Computed example of a mutant assay.
Amino acid sequence: MYRIGELAKLCEVKTDTLRFYEKHGLLSPLMRTESGYRMYTEEDAERLRFILRAKAVGFTLAEIAELLSIDLDKSNWACADVKGMVDIKLAQVSAKIAELNHFQVSLKRLSDACCGGPESAEHCSILEALESNSAEVKRENHTHQHQNNPNKASCKRKG
């Protein structure tokens, strides 16, 4: 039997994490002592490890609850049911990666279009692109003269 702090230490989580999982119905102590301490069994420790592994691969609390219910009633479920949950999660992660790749390309395009100089942002290509209805990012037209240093590029637009 483990008290809450002992189980938390064993699984390298905070006691608040255990309380959180208890609040959401994922974990419940076998009993409480007369002084009110939560007491957990080795089975609870295994359940917590299951929760932590499922969380580590990206499952939500609701999905973890469903996986736990399947785990408790394995004989009434097929492997295809569990694989289906994993495949749905995999598709969601793949879609998120594609979205993040799109963000990366778009941000790179915005960054590359701007000189990043110290001049006024009046004609900043990033701000203009974000204000525009067009998906196109226009590169700043740099003059290659600066008031004090003719070799320093400027963000000011020509004409």
Rank of each mutant, 00 (worst) to 15 (best):
M1W: 00
R3C: 01
R3T: 07
I4T: 07
I4D: 08
I4N: 05
G5L: 00
G5K: 01
L7S: 04
L7P: 07
A8T: 02
K9M: 02
L10R: 03
K14I: 01
T15Q: 14
R19Y: 09
F20K: 05
Y21T: 01
E22K: 01
E22Q: 15
K23T: 01
H24E: 12
H24A: 02
G25H: 14
L26V: 00
L27C: 05
L27H: 04
S28Y: 04
S28H: 08
M31R: 12
R32Y: 06
E34A: 09
S35Q: 10
Y37W: 10
Y37F: 14
R38Y: 09
T41A: 15
D44I: 02
D44A: 11
R47Y: 09
L48S: 13
R49P: 02
F50Q: 11
I51D: 10
I51L: 08
A54W: 11
A54P: 10
K55S: 09
A56V: 02
A56R: 10
V57P: 14
G58V: 12
G58N: 13
F59T: 11
F59D: 13
F59A: 12
L61Y: 10
A62R: 06
A62S: 15
E63Q: 15
E63P: 12
I64T: 13
A65T: 02
A65W: 03
L67C: 05
L68C: 11
S69N: 15
I70R: 08
I70N: 07
D71W: 06
D73W: 03
S75R: 04
S75E: 09
S75T: 07
N76I: 01
V82N: 11
K83C: 04
K83R: 11
G84A: 13
V86A: 15
V86L: 15
V86Y: 15
D87V: 05
I88C: 10
L90Y: 07
L90P: 02
A91Y: 04
Q92I: 00
S94M: 06
S94G: 03
A95D: 13
K96G: 05
K96H: 07
A98V: 00
E99P: 01
N101G: 03
N101Q: 14
K108C: 00
K108H: 10
R109T: 11
R109S: 08
S111V: 12
D112I: 01
A113Q: 14
C114E: 14
C115Y: 06
G116E: 02
G117R: 08
G117N: 09
P118L: 08
E119H: 15
E119P: 02
A121M: 09
E122K: 14
H123D: 15
C124G: 13
S125K: 03
L127T: 11
L130M: 14
E131F: 07
E131L: 10
S132I: 12
S134R: 03
S134P: 10
E136S: 15
R139N: 07
H142K: 10
T143D: 12
T143N: 14
H144K: 13
Q145S: 09
Q145R: 13
Q147I: 10
N148Y: 14
N149I: 03
P150W: 05
N151H: 12
K152H: 03
C155F: 06
K156N: 09
K156A: 13
R157M: 06
R157K: 10
K158N: 12
K158D: 08
